[in-house]
């Protein structure tokens, strides 16, 4: 019997049947779409800034005293408090902090008194030098591997391929990047003496840190890509495309790939923002002069302006990345654009 009536509003939050033949006034959804994403980014950034600001004030005890240690004289503590503006009322501090963030003035380290902005300015590009190539490599590996395995293992075929794929990616997926870094370092630096041990000393020093960052995310993303591709391969529109006898290349590239991008990229964004965080750990293993080697020290030394600065920069990078992915999705998948407007 017909299922026509299921189109009627049925849930507690029914999405009223879209005007099926939209009018021309909806012709330019792009501007609204990008604007809505930008607005979301600004709100998120504001929340991030506020959170890092509040963090310092939620720490039990006096942060300056904690940073300078028990031996510090009250005069010194008071002086530092004044320098940091911590003796002002909270709203004034917040405004000051906001203004600082906007102008790029992130305050000074409590410990070294060096400007945090300068420190991050020299170190953050080094972090990006790891994260960006890793990002690109993850995509370049995960998409073809996932799609190919999906095609090979569709409909219960290729059980051996499936078994190898699932187990290998499962293993790589379970090796955290810092352990991978350790193992790589033991094998290739200590054992085979192929690569430099630590630091940024030339092209060869990139190989191991980037590899350590790529393996895990590439494995988990290719698993997701495979599952998504299997879902798409099972859809009626792929069947319909097959019924039109389209050549395989066209079938996979035009009919399958764009449709698995939504979920793949959404998960991909999470994995890749995890990758930004992963640099923190990997840098520590290879003594890479990025922000990661700074933060653990800063947290232990309770150097709050520095911690704030690192969290801000990394957090902003993640948010920006998410927005880029969102916009990309809008390009690839018209439905997500529509969803943004509802």
């Amino acid at each position: 019997m017909t299922t026509a009536t299921t189109l009627e509003p049925a849930g507690p939050l029914p999405s009223p049947a879209l005007p099926a033949e939209p009018t021309a006034s909806r012709a330019r959804p792009w501007i609204r779409f990008v604007a809505s994403r930008l607005l979301r980014l600004v709100v998120s950034l504001l929340v991030l800034v506020t959170a890092t600001f509040v963090m310092v004030h939620l720490v039990p005890g006096d942060p300056v005293q904690a940073a300078l240690g028990e031996q510090a004289t009250p005069q010194l503590v008071e002086l530092r408090r004044h320098e940091l503006g911590l003796d002002q009322p909270l709203p004034a501090q917040y405004v000051h902090y906001l203004r600082g963030v906007v102008t790029g003035d992130l305050g000074r380290s409590i410990v070294t008194e060096a400007p945090v902005g300068d420190l991050l300015g020299t170190r953050f590009p080094n972090t990006l030098r790891l994260a960006v190539p890793a990002f690109v490599l993850v995509i370049l590996i995960a998409l073809p591997v996932g799609l190919l395995t999906a095609v090979r293992t569709r409909g219960g075929r290729g059980r051996v391929t499936r078994g190898v794929f699932v187990n290998v990616t499962g293993l790589f997926n379970s090796v955290p990047d810092y352990v991978m870094a350790t193992v790589l370092s033991v094998v290739f630096v200590v054992g085979l003496k192929l690569f430099p041990a630590a630091g940024l000393t030339g092209p060869r020093s990139y190989v191991l840190p980037v590899a350590a960052l790529v393996v895990g995310p590439a494995a988990s993303l290719s698993r997701i890509v495979r599952v998504e591709a299997l879902k798409v391969l099972d859809t009626e529109y792929v069947r319909a495309a097959k019924s039109r006898r389209l050549p395989r290349r066209l079938l996979y590239l035009r009919h399958v790939l764009p449709n698995m991008m939504t979920a793949s990229l959404t998960f991909g964004a999470m994995i890749l923002s995890g990758l930004v965080a992963g640099t923190v750990l990997v840098e520590n293993v290879f003594g890479w002069p990025g922000v990661g080697t700074v933060i653990s020290q800063a947290v232990i030394q309770k150097d709050f302006p520095l911690v704030q600065g690192v969290l801000l920069v990394l957090g902003a990078a993640v948010l920006l990345l998410n927005m880029v992915v969102d916009v990309l999705l809008g390009v690839l998948d018209p439905r997500s654009r529509l969803g943004a407007l509802r």
């Binding site: 890092t52 999470m270 930004v276 923190v280 933060i295 709050f304 993640v318 948010l319």
Partner: peptide, 16 residues
């Protein structure tokens, strides 16, 4: 919150 990687959140909360 989901947008932030767990490690960043962990560091944030570790400070707290």
């Amino acid at each position: 919150l989901m947008a932030f990687p767990a490690l960043l959140l962990s560091i944030f909360f570790a400070v707290l």
